[in-house]
Amino acid sequence: MNYWRGQRTKCLELLCQIKTMRLLSVSAALVLLMLQAGCPTRNVTVAGSVPTPLVERIPASIGIYYSYEFKSFEHKEALPGSGSYRIDLGGQNLDFFRNLLGAMFAEVIEVNQPSVQEGDELDAILIPEIVKYGFLVPSVSTLTFFEASIEYQITVLDRAGQELGKLRIVGYGKAEGSMFGGVDAVGEATMLAIRDGGARIATELSPRIAALLADSEETNGLQP
């Protein structure tokens, strides 16, 4: 009798253990699901100084058209194993370009349309665009730092609205990451990519834009 009672108690204990194990596994799965579902998108804010370039001004009056896409550019990407990122670089990039292009030409006017309007006394219009943005984190690149690159395109239009040329450059930046500083490091790498792009525009594209404007001036001057 006691033997059967003992066996029954053992059975109950075993059932209880199985139930507990099931409960634990279900709880663990639930916690994992909650963690995955609750894992928020990492919002990266790009911030940094906006230096004025120390370059010789091109003696020209330029209109700059910043499109809505350029002004509010943001990049969203989900990296396998690293979560989702939302990088808002439009504001900082716009501040940087306003300062950069303002120091590159004798006169700069921001225009609302990508064309010369009647009464505008402009030599040309520049339309900067972000063609491509990309970033890499160490878990993907297997390197020890975070990287970002931005491909810019600057379209140059003459005063008649004719396209003089499209110039492209790529800015690159990399930043060391701390143990929990992935978001900051992506932001820093992006800021360095903007700086690098700006440096290339000021030193490499500036003479090319000046040459395009000079050629256009010459051609227009020769026309009857």
Binding site: L54, V55, R195, A199
Partner: peptide, 16 residues
């Protein structure tokens, strides 16, 4: 370093 690089931008950027 940061102040120096900003003052002399773009001449002390990594590429240049």
């Amino acid at each position: 370093q940061k102040e120096f690089k900003d003052n002399l931008y773009p001449w002390f950027e990594p590429r240049i």
